[in-house]
Amino acid sequence: MSALIICWNRDKWDGWDTPYEAIAEAMRDPAFRYVCRWSVGARRTVTVGTDAWLLRQGRIRGLIGHGRVLTEPVEGPHFTDPGKTRRYVLVEFDTLLDESDVIPADLLQAVVPQVAWAFQFQSGNSVPGDAESQLLELWTDATGRAIMD
Protein backbone atom coordinates (compact mmCIF):
# COMPACT_ATOMS: atom_id res chain seq x y z
CA MET A 1 0.00 0.00 0.00
CA SER A 2 1.40 3.38 -0.92
CA ALA A 3 -1.63 5.53 -0.04
CA LEU A 4 -4.40 5.42 2.54
CA ILE A 5 -7.38 7.50 3.55
CA ILE A 6 -7.61 8.84 7.07
CA CYS A 7 -10.86 10.44 8.17
CA TRP A 8 -11.79 13.42 10.30
CA ASN A 9 -15.30 14.35 11.38
CA ARG A 10 -15.14 17.60 13.32
CA ASP A 11 -18.65 17.01 14.65
CA LYS A 12 -17.41 13.88 16.48
CA TRP A 13 -13.79 14.77 17.29
CA ASP A 14 -11.94 18.05 17.22
CA GLY A 15 -9.02 17.15 19.44
CA TRP A 16 -6.18 18.70 17.46
CA ASP A 17 -3.38 19.84 19.81
CA THR A 18 -3.54 23.23 18.08
CA PRO A 19 -6.81 24.61 16.63
CA TYR A 20 -7.24 23.33 13.08
CA GLU A 21 -7.58 26.84 11.64
CA ALA A 22 -4.20 27.84 13.08
CA ILE A 23 -2.54 24.74 11.63
CA ALA A 24 -4.11 25.33 8.19
CA GLU A 25 -2.92 28.95 8.34
CA ALA A 26 0.64 27.87 9.16
CA MET A 27 0.47 25.37 6.28
CA ARG A 28 0.45 28.29 3.84
CA ASP A 29 4.22 28.20 4.35
CA PRO A 30 5.26 25.25 2.13
CA ALA A 31 8.09 24.41 4.55
CA PHE A 32 5.78 24.01 7.58
CA ARG A 33 4.94 20.48 8.73
CA TYR A 34 2.57 19.31 11.46
CA VAL A 35 3.03 15.92 13.15
CA CYS A 36 0.30 14.19 15.11
CA ARG A 37 -1.04 10.75 15.99
CA TRP A 38 -3.86 9.49 13.76
CA SER A 39 -6.08 6.43 13.83
CA VAL A 40 -5.83 3.86 11.06
CA GLY A 41 -8.76 1.88 12.46
CA ALA A 42 -7.92 -1.79 12.89
CA ARG A 43 -5.25 -1.82 10.14
CA ARG A 44 -2.21 -3.71 11.40
CA THR A 45 0.14 -2.99 8.52
CA VAL A 46 1.00 0.48 7.25
CA THR A 47 4.39 1.15 5.71
CA VAL A 48 6.41 4.14 6.84
CA GLY A 49 6.29 6.70 4.02
CA THR A 50 2.73 5.84 2.95
CA ASP A 51 0.75 8.83 1.64
CA ALA A 52 -2.06 9.74 4.05
CA TRP A 53 -5.02 11.59 2.51
CA LEU A 54 -7.23 13.36 5.06
CA LEU A 55 -10.93 13.09 4.21
CA ARG A 56 -13.18 15.60 5.98
CA GLN A 57 -16.51 14.05 6.96
CA GLY A 58 -19.72 15.40 8.43
CA ARG A 59 -21.31 18.69 7.32
CA ILE A 60 -18.34 19.41 5.08
CA ARG A 61 -17.20 16.36 3.12
CA GLY A 62 -14.14 16.12 0.91
CA LEU A 63 -10.39 15.93 0.76
CA ILE A 64 -8.77 18.45 3.08
CA GLY A 65 -5.21 17.33 3.72
CA HIS A 66 -2.17 15.27 2.84
CA GLY A 67 0.69 13.86 4.83
CA ARG A 68 3.07 10.93 5.16
CA VAL A 69 3.06 8.13 7.69
CA LEU A 70 6.10 8.26 9.98
CA THR A 71 5.58 5.10 12.09
CA GLU A 72 4.11 1.64 11.93
CA PRO A 73 0.74 1.20 13.69
CA VAL A 74 0.58 0.79 17.46
CA GLU A 75 -2.49 -0.09 19.49
CA GLY A 76 -3.99 2.41 21.90
CA PRO A 77 -7.29 3.43 23.50
CA HIS A 78 -10.03 4.48 21.10
CA PHE A 79 -10.12 8.29 20.80
CA THR A 80 -13.81 8.53 21.84
CA ASP A 81 -14.42 5.22 23.66
CA PRO A 82 -11.64 4.24 26.11
CA GLY A 83 -13.19 0.77 26.45
CA LYS A 84 -12.18 0.01 22.85
CA THR A 85 -8.86 0.14 21.04
CA ARG A 86 -7.65 1.41 17.68
CA ARG A 87 -4.33 1.41 15.90
CA TYR A 88 -2.47 4.68 15.46
CA VAL A 89 0.39 6.04 13.38
CA LEU A 90 2.23 9.33 13.44
CA VAL A 91 1.42 11.42 10.38
CA GLU A 92 3.49 14.35 9.18
CA PHE A 93 1.04 16.65 7.39
CA ASP A 94 2.47 18.81 4.62
CA THR A 95 -0.87 20.35 3.65
CA LEU A 96 -4.09 21.05 5.53
CA LEU A 97 -6.57 23.18 3.61
CA ASP A 98 -8.95 25.78 4.97
CA GLU A 99 -12.32 24.09 5.33
CA SER A 100 -13.73 26.40 2.67
CA ASP A 101 -11.16 24.98 0.19
CA VAL A 102 -12.03 21.30 0.66
CA ILE A 103 -12.00 19.24 -2.56
CA PRO A 104 -15.65 18.15 -2.61
CA ALA A 105 -16.63 14.49 -2.45
CA ASP A 106 -18.64 14.71 -5.68
CA LEU A 107 -15.54 15.95 -7.55
CA LEU A 108 -13.44 13.20 -5.96
CA GLN A 109 -15.98 10.61 -7.07
CA ALA A 110 -16.03 11.98 -10.64
CA VAL A 111 -12.24 12.18 -11.05
CA VAL A 112 -11.14 9.22 -8.90
CA PRO A 113 -14.05 6.75 -9.14
CA GLN A 114 -11.92 3.77 -8.05
CA VAL A 115 -12.36 4.98 -4.44
CA ALA A 116 -15.81 4.70 -2.85
CA TRP A 117 -15.62 8.23 -1.41
CA ALA A 118 -19.18 8.15 -0.04
CA PHE A 119 -18.43 4.96 1.89
CA GLN A 120 -15.31 5.92 3.83
CA PHE A 121 -16.55 5.49 7.38
CA GLN A 122 -13.25 5.03 9.20
CA SER A 123 -9.58 5.72 8.74
CA GLY A 124 -7.19 3.20 7.27
CA ASN A 125 -8.75 2.33 3.92
CA SER A 126 -6.26 1.98 1.09
CA VAL A 127 -6.29 3.90 -2.18
CA PRO A 128 -6.12 1.49 -5.14
CA GLY A 129 -2.81 1.72 -7.00
CA ASP A 130 -4.53 2.67 -10.27
CA ALA A 131 -6.17 5.66 -8.55
CA GLU A 132 -3.08 7.23 -6.99
CA SER A 133 -1.89 9.19 -10.03
CA GLN A 134 -5.40 10.58 -10.61
CA LEU A 135 -5.64 11.60 -6.97
CA LEU A 136 -2.24 13.29 -7.06
CA GLU A 137 -3.15 15.17 -10.24
CA LEU A 138 -6.49 16.33 -8.82
CA TRP A 139 -4.78 17.47 -5.60
CA THR A 140 -2.12 19.43 -7.51
CA ASP A 141 -4.71 21.04 -9.80
CA ALA A 142 -7.05 21.97 -6.93
CA THR A 143 -4.45 23.16 -4.42
CA GLY A 144 -1.59 24.35 -6.58
CA ARG A 145 0.72 22.23 -4.39
CA ALA A 146 2.55 19.20 -5.70
CA ILE A 147 3.31 16.30 -3.41
CA MET A 148 7.06 15.82 -3.05
CA ASP A 149 8.72 12.42 -2.71
Rank of each mutant, 00 (worst) to 15 (best):
M148F: 03
E99M: 07
G58P: 09
D11N: 10
G62E: 02
Y20M: 05
S100P: 02
D51Q: 08
L108F: 08
L54M: 11
K12V: 12
L138C: 10
I23M: 03
M148L: 06
G129D: 14
A26G: 05
A118G: 14
V35P: 02
G83P: 01
A31G: 01
K12A: 10
Y88N: 09
A31C: 00
S100G: 11
R86Q: 13
G76I: 11
G41A: 02
R68A: 10
Y34H: 15
D14V: 02
R87M: 15
G49Y: 13
R61F: 13
N125C: 08
T80A: 13
D130R: 14
F119C: 01
L97I: 07
D29A: 07
W16C: 00
I23R: 01
D106K: 12
D51W: 07
A31S: 09
D130V: 10
F79C: 05
R59K: 13
P113G: 10
K12Y: 09
P73K: 04
A116L: 12
D51G: 02
G144F: 13
E72T: 15
L136P: 07
V89T: 09
Y34M: 04
T85Y: 07
P82D: 10
W53C: 01
A24M: 02
F32R: 14
L70E: 14
I147Y: 04
L138W: 05
T140E: 13
Y88E: 06
T143I: 05
D51E: 14
F93I: 02
P30A: 12
W53K: 00
E92V: 02
R86L: 06
K12Q: 11
